[in-house]
């Protein structure tokens, strides 16, 4: 009894409580369709999940010190790949969905291995041009993409798993779980990357490129890896987006969506590869939807811009909202704040 009590006392509550509290929203997200199947709530969560995946990719690229304005282009590539393969060629839906990520990843790798040679501001301009090129091609290549009228996607087939019948057309719940799975997979992959040696390498590249290169880090290799991974998951996100909206048109993937992804990532904070983008995109998307209901047009954009500016001024260097989380816990434990490189895992002793 005494031993058990001792173990109870020496248990590391300080590191456990934050994790327990952080697990609560995950469980809530899993159970939301049990409480409500309202289309408005699910719609909001599905779309913020889709943007969160794209924003995670942006954060990963930003970690290597590059500023990509091409995330929406890869979403467009993924969306159009899945739509064209399933509608025009008539291949199975799930196969098309799988291909959307692969094609977008291959395109990202090919483009990245050429374009990432010029870094910095030029990379931003090239990715901007790329986004516009993809959008114009989608608009003008009438026979395949149906131009600005948009391509109507085929719904995913029904799945019969014994007693469980999943019908994607009936309501949004299957799409909700599909998005949740995508967010979870992307999050797990990026989280593991953040923990490994590669994550440390990305941080070194963000802190000081020249020093990182002299430490023997092959900058080009890691940039292409980050760009490709971001492209793969943006492609999947784009495919879900196109299929959820049931129509894909060039208007939904432009430079302004790329900037929106950037804002979500910056507001959430880049000290975390997973939680930051999720918080940022959910917050900004829900804010945008709520403000769009007001009769004053433009207030959503105004506040979007203002929020990002305020976050960048008061939470500098891209720490974002996620950085408030450890600060709150330090306040609770009354610890003295110390500077800690964000993302670096604490040594277990």
């Amino acid at each position: 009894m005494n031993v058990w009590l001792n173990r109870f006392r020496t248990f590391d509550w300080r590191n456990t409580w934050p994790k327990v509290v952080a697990a609560v929203p995950v469980i809530i997200f899993l159970l939301i369709p049990v409480f409500t199947q309202g289309e408005i709530v699910l719609n909001m969560l599905i779309l913020s999940g889709i943007w969160a995946v794209a924003a995670m990719g942006f954060t990963l690229i930003l970690r290597t010190g590059q500023f990509s304005l091409g995330q929406a282009a890869f979403m467009a590539i993924g969306g159009y790949t899945s739509a064209i393969i399933s509608v025009v060629l008539g291949w199975p839906w799930w196969f098309a969905f799988l291909l959307s990520g692969i094609v977008s990843g291959i395109v990202a790798m090919l483009i990245g291995s050429v374009v990432l040679r010029v870094g910095g501001i030029y990379f931003s301009i090239i990715t901007l041009s790329l986004t516009e090129v993809i959008r114009i091609i989608a608009q003008q290549w009438e026979p395949v993409t149906h131009g600005s009228r948009g391509l109507i996607t085929t719904p995913p087939p029904n799945i019969d798993l014994g007693p469980l019948h999943i019908n994607f057309m009936a309501n949004s719940v299957p799409f909700y779980y599909l998005t949740l799975i995508l967010v979870a997979v992307t999050g797990l992959v990026f989280w593991q990357i953040g923990k490994t040696r590669m994550g440390g390498t990305f941080y070194a590249m963000l802190a000081n490129q020249t020093l990182a290169e002299h430490e023997g880090i092959h900058l080009m290799k890691y940039r292409v890896i980050a760009f490709t991974l971001a492209g793969v998951f943006a492609g999947f996100a784009g495919a879900i987006y196109a299929n959820y909206l049931t129509v894909i048109s060039p208007l939904i993937f432009g430079l302004w969506q790329s900037i929106q992804i950037m804002m979500m990532s910056i507001v959430g904070g880049m000290s975390s590869l997973v939680a930051g983008p999720i918080i940022g995109s959910t917050l900004l998307y829900v804010l945008g939807i709520q403000l769009a209901r007001l009769p004053i047009y433009g207030i959503a954009q105004l506040l979007y811009g203002a929020v990002v500016v305020l976050v960048l001024i008061f939470l500098p260097k891209g720490t974002g909202l996620i950085d408030l989380w450890p600060r709150i816990w330090r306040k609770i434990y009354r610890e003295v704040e110390e500077y800690e490189i964000p993302g670096e895992t604490r040594q277990e002793d």
């Binding site: 500023f67 804002m263 979007y304 811009g305 990002v308 500016v309």
Partner: peptide, 10 residues
């Protein structure tokens, strides 16, 4: 760069 991009929306 990010802040000037955000000001576009503002």
């Amino acid at each position: 760069g990010a802040v000037t991009l955000a000001l576009i929306f503002f």
